[in-house]
Design a protein around this nucleic acid. Structure first.
Lengths: 123, 123
DNA sequence: TTGAGTATATTGTAATGCAAGGTAGTGATG
DNA sequence: CATCACTACCTTGCATTACAATATACTCAA
């Protein structure tokens, strides 16, 4: 399970990426996230996030009848949303590059300036 | 610049990884983070985090004189900290696997069940 | 009529990055 | 000697956000 704190800032961009693929709605997004390996993301997380994105002008919505069941609120990216998605991808790569360069993450590169001023026992 | 929300849950594990390499202190950690590509992480972020980790029993500290300048508080991982670091690495890989499988991240695998129930214009 | 599944929304809580502020020691510059 | 820069630590308060809990409402099957 991915801890909630690790999801902060990741979920928003991930949902933008999902919406960018095809017009979709909250319930379907939650299923897509589970399918992509994010685990079960609470609806109490997804709907407020979608409202935030809508208020922020990153996505726009329209209600569509389904013939059966409640109406669905379909979302589409705005140009600002597209831009935000691109920025997210850049930031994400920057973040993973930093973490992956950390010792013990199997992707060490450079950074061999291990200084020898190791502290001696003292009190 | 990595957005602050994206750092949540990442910073703690990253700092544990840095401490696991060698006994070190707050100021040096902030420089190491910058060197690894995290950008300038505020001291208002690092010191509270170190105190949290110490109170949580993940790290232990001892003060050492430096001969010149203020005393340094050197930190070491506890067994619980080691375990937490291992768990962080697992969660991190799980998270990046999910994000990387998202459309538009250059690492698409499987997930070709794109259903054809595309909504037709309606109102 | 009871339940499960689909679908959206709101309220309140907890976690955490960080700006802003403070303390203190050392050494160089004027 | 006064000032500044750098090292090094710490605290307070704010903003953001994932999520549990809760609510509404429609459809369909048992």
């Amino acid at each position: 399970m991915i801890p909630s704190q690790m999801l902060k800032g990741i979920l928003q961009g991930s949902i933008l990426a999902i919406i960018s693929q095809k017009e979709t709605y909250g319930y379907e997004i939650s299923q897509a996230l589970a399918r992509y390996g994010f685990g079960t993301i609470s609806e109490g997380t997804i709907y407020p996030l979608l409202l935030r994105l809508e208020k922020g002008g990153l996505i726009v919505a329209r209600f569509l009848d389904t013939g059966s069941g409640p109406k669905r609120k379909y979302y589409t990216l705005t140009p600002a949303g597209q831009e935000e998605l691109t920025q997210f991808q850049i930031s994400y790569r920057e973040m993973t590059a930093a973490v992956d360069s950390l010792p013990g993450f199997g992707k060490e590169e450079s950074h061999e300036e291990r200084d020898q001023t190791a502290p001696e026992g003292e009190q």
